[in-house]
Amino acid sequence: MGRSCPAVHVDHRHTAGRVQSYLSFNCNSAIGLLGNFPDTVRRAAAYLEGNSWKPTLVAPGVYQLPS
């Protein structure tokens, strides 16, 4: 389990100009670095959980990359 950090930074939506929540510095930075894209965060979590994102062999010599 991850360690807990104090939520001391205000997270806001730049496009809406409103406060969303309070986060730790590390969490706020990580979300920003991941581009605020939920799918990117899900892929990062899957990687950390050991679910690799390897290409799938669909025909001899033909691989499909994960979407």
Rank of each mutant, 00 (worst) to 15 (best):
M1R: 10
G2L: 12
R3Y: 05
S4M: 06
S4Y: 04
S4W: 01
S4C: 07
C5G: 12
C5F: 11
P6V: 08
P6F: 10
P6D: 08
P6W: 10
A7D: 15
V8I: 15
H9D: 12
H9S: 08
H9A: 09
H9W: 06
H9T: 11
V10F: 00
V10K: 11
D11M: 11
H12N: 06
H12C: 04
H12V: 03
R13V: 07
R13I: 06
R13K: 11
H14S: 11
H14W: 02
H14C: 04
T15D: 15
T15G: 01
T15K: 14
A16M: 07
G17F: 09
G17S: 06
V19A: 10
V19H: 07
V19S: 09
Q20R: 15
Q20A: 04
Q20Y: 06
S21C: 08
Y22R: 14
Y22N: 11
Y22D: 09
S24H: 05
S24L: 02
F25H: 10
N26R: 10
N26S: 11
N26F: 07
N26I: 01
C27V: 03
C27K: 05
C27M: 09
N28W: 02
N28V: 01
S29K: 13
S29F: 09
S29Q: 14
S29V: 13
S29C: 12
A30D: 00
A30N: 01
G32D: 03
G32C: 03
L33A: 08
L33Q: 09
L33R: 10
L33N: 02
L34Q: 02
L34K: 03
L34P: 03
G35H: 04
G35A: 02
N36E: 11
N36C: 07
F37K: 13
F37V: 13
P38W: 02
P38S: 04
P38F: 03
D39Q: 12
D39L: 12
T40M: 03
T40E: 04
T40F: 06
V41K: 03
V41W: 02
V41T: 04
R42G: 00
R43H: 03
R43W: 00
R43E: 05
A44N: 01
A44R: 08
A44S: 05
A44E: 04
A45W: 05
A46R: 14
A46G: 02
Y47N: 10
Y47K: 13
Y47L: 14
Y47I: 14
Y47E: 10
L48V: 06
L48G: 01
E49L: 15
E49T: 02
G50M: 05
G50F: 07
N51W: 00
N51D: 15
S52Q: 09
S52A: 08
S52T: 06
W53T: 06
W53N: 12
W53S: 14
W53E: 14
P55W: 03
P55T: 04
P55A: 09
P55M: 02
A59M: 06
P60Y: 14
P60L: 11
V62T: 13
Y63G: 01
Y63T: 03
Y63A: 07
Q64E: 14
L65Q: 11
L65H: 09
L65S: 07
P66Q: 08
S67L: 10
